[in-house]
Simulated assay, not measured.
Amino acid sequence: MRDAVWTALKTVNDPELHRDLVSLGMIEHAEVEGNVAHVKVNLTTPACPLKGQIEGDVRAAVLAVPGIQDVVVTFGAMVRPPAQPALPGVKYVLLVGSGKGGVGKSSVAVNLAVSLARDGARVGLLDADVYGPSVAHMMGQGGARVTANAERKMQPIEAHGVRFLSMANLSPAGQALVWRGPMLHSAIQQFLKDAAWGDLDYLIVDLPPGTGDVQLSLTQTVHVTGAVLVTTPQDVALIDAARALDMFRKASVPVLGVVENMSYFVAPDTGLTYDIFGRGGSRKLGNLPLLGEVPLDVEARQDADRGLPAVLAHPQSPAAAALTQIARNLAGRVSVQALAHLPEQLPVV
């Protein structure tokens, strides 16, 4: 009967990877005790967006085996290393960018990082907006100072399960940095290679607005897994987002999807939805996957101001729920991207 269960599991495909769970090496064990099958599935990311569907498909397939009356499905997760790791100990580097400021890019980056960590991934967050760093404040660590470890490497600050570095924690509060391109390049190099990031599944990088020195330094320094474009729906934001998209393509950085921020507003007193900036404009960027739409939310703004990410402070709010799903969709896109480098047949544990 055990062999029949394994045969049944070969008919269950991962909904995103479109290959069966057995050939993907996602079945850790499948045993039968009496008339009950026990199956453990190792997901390709702790933030798998389709965990419920996978569980339902496994149960349906195994229950079809004669003699099986119940199925107990448990889950583990392991973010598989890519063929070419981004940095020593860092599996994937994900850029969060926009063509212009004011679209909520940093807020999205912070909540993506915290959401992935809350789902169980090991996450780092690099604030590469050297001139206008805001990540430290949004993480509630504006007054913290970066220290060095015994190997004289920068020790990232930890908050909400995420390790992060920001220029705000290295320079005096309120001091403007008046740097030319070479100094920016040097700073980015140090953030990436002279920091004790440890073992990370994902390193989220909050880019500055535009298409300048920092973006070039990053793409030339590390193997970037992919980028996320953040935009608001109106044309004036989309014009600059299109420029950022062109920059990523010229730098051979895959764009994993787009996040439409401030997409709509739900009036708290009536529940009516208002498309203040014109909803759905992100679809004008071409065939990019839409990772999700984030509504305008007063609580999310207040949470950012007091240094607590919305996905933790008000996880049931519309904005936080959207950001959580976006993080899971992004993790799924990374898994799909990694599949292109996986062998056709993976070993069964």
Rank of each mutant, 00 (worst) to 15 (best):
E16V: 12
L17A: 13
R19V: 06
R19Q: 13
R19S: 08
L21Q: 01
L24K: 08
L24G: 01
G25Q: 04
G25H: 05
G25T: 06
E28T: 14
E28S: 12
A30T: 05
A30F: 02
E31R: 10
E31V: 14
V32K: 03
V32D: 07
E33S: 13
G34Q: 08
G34K: 14
V36N: 05
A37V: 08
H38I: 10
H38N: 08
H38S: 11
H38P: 08
V39M: 12
V39E: 00
V39G: 00
K40L: 14
V41G: 02
V41H: 07
N42A: 15
L43N: 00
T44K: 03
T44Q: 04
T45Y: 13
P46M: 04
A47F: 09
P49A: 02
P49G: 08
L50P: 10
L50G: 10
K51S: 05
G52A: 14
G52V: 05
G52S: 14
I54F: 15
I54Q: 01
I54S: 11
G56R: 10
V58C: 01
R59G: 00
R59N: 12
A60K: 15
V62M: 08
L63E: 11
L63V: 02
A64K: 05
A64M: 05
V65Q: 06
P66L: 02
P66S: 05
G67I: 10
I68A: 02
I68Y: 00
I68W: 07
Q69A: 15
D70R: 10
D70G: 09
V71H: 12
V72G: 06
V72S: 04
V72N: 14
V72W: 11
T74M: 00
G76Q: 08
A77I: 13
A77M: 02
A77C: 14
A77R: 02
M78K: 15
M78F: 09
R80N: 15
R80Y: 03
P82T: 01
P82L: 05
P88N: 14
G89H: 07
V90Y: 09
K91M: 01
K91F: 15
Y92P: 15
Y92S: 11
Y92H: 08
